[in-house]
Amino acid sequence: MTTPTMAMKVLRAPRVRRSSTTFLISAVFLGVVTLAAIFAPLIAPYPPNQVDLLNIQAGPSPAHWLGTDALGRDTLSRMMFGARTALLAPLLVVVFSTIVGILLGLLAGWRGGWIDSVLGRIFDVIFAFPALLLAIMAVALFGKGLVAPVVAMSIAYAPFVARLTRSLIASERSRPYVAAYRVQGFGGGFIALRRVLPNVMPIVGAQSTLNFGYVLAELAALSFLGLGVQAPTADWGAMVNEAQAGLIGGYFLPALVPAVAIVLVVVAVNVIGEELSDRIGGEIPA
């Protein structure tokens, strides 16, 4: 008898109907940023590293919509080119960590036993190294740039995906519908890959979407620290780093533009990720 509780839930749970306009706006914004990044060489008004010493620290103007930096470089053009590393690097991290995480999580959650324990122990050790720390260590070992940090962050994030997948798979595995498949005579591989995995994928996907935001912010921070993308290459985090010196002199724009861009992209990604997980939350039986 689930009656009373169900009846009370009808009364109790106030479904916050999130307007999907925010979702739509976020998606459109991300689309625009992505297109700008892809077509930067075609649409950027100036080459990203074109120095114009007569026009340094300029405010917004028809020639430079977002002004110029301390070397007179066009901020808008640098933003477009900078979006390439800012978006591509976290994308690589998310794709890699999701694939590895799902495979390991599936293995641990479905097989259980000693494999689960060993993997769990390994994950525990990696959890003790925050992603950014691992990235910094990678730079210390292999030198500056984005390659080592991207690999390090993938390794750092994979256990998060794996642990989530593991717990979802393990809880699905104990559900009667899985027992029902077994009784019907389906093989373990079929049930795990074709039936159970698709049921947990949406949640893992939503989590990975959220991870994208974190990774983007962390890699930008790494460039801000001067350990990631190196000057003069345009990158949002590196741009904030370069513009930091101008802050004291009151030149906020060159630092604020990339900073705000990072925030907006992360907000958009979070809105999408949260709404995705909300939508799924309604469908997966609790």
Binding site: P176, A180, V183, P285
Partner: peptide, 13 residues
């Protein structure tokens, strides 16, 4: 076999 909880014994998808 037919299971106890019809809410959980069918694959939601």
């Amino acid at each position: 076999m037919v299971f106890q909880d019809p809410y959980l014994s069918l694959d939601p998808r």
